[in-house]
Amino acid sequence: MSVLLAFLAAALFGTGTFLLLQRRLSRIIIGIGLIGHGSNVLLLTSGGGRGLPPIIDSADPTDFSDPLPQALALTSIVITFGVTAFLFALGYRSWKITHDDIVEDDVEDRYIARRVVVDQMVAEGEAAAREIELDEDRG
């Protein structure tokens, strides 16, 4: 495996991960694209050898590089391409609805969390009311 390609893959994974941790979908998409490229570079290097064409009119296996990783990389590029297009469509839709493409929090999660707080407040309130009643009973 070429050292240069290994470093390239590492750099792509690194920058991609950084972008993935952002809040905006547009950046996340770019991040995913970079990570996808990184994994494709990795896939390509798994064929071994460099600078050689895949099978061309030769029967000697040292004359050409393994064509299978190239085919695999091509397939995964096509798939990543399609899904990225879908993500862009999703971002576009989000922009139409909210004028923004920020990936928002889980609403229901917030609702549950708030419900717990409300329950606590109610419980505290009831406890306080009981205290007062007890005080009144005593006094």
């Binding site: 096509v78 798939i79 990543t80 391409f81 399609g82 899904v83 297009a85 879908f86 999703l90």
Partner: peptide, 8 residues
């Protein structure tokens, strides 16, 4: 706008 499926 439902994006067409089945790319890739």
């Amino acid at each position: 706008p439902e994006p067409p499926d089945g790319t890739g």
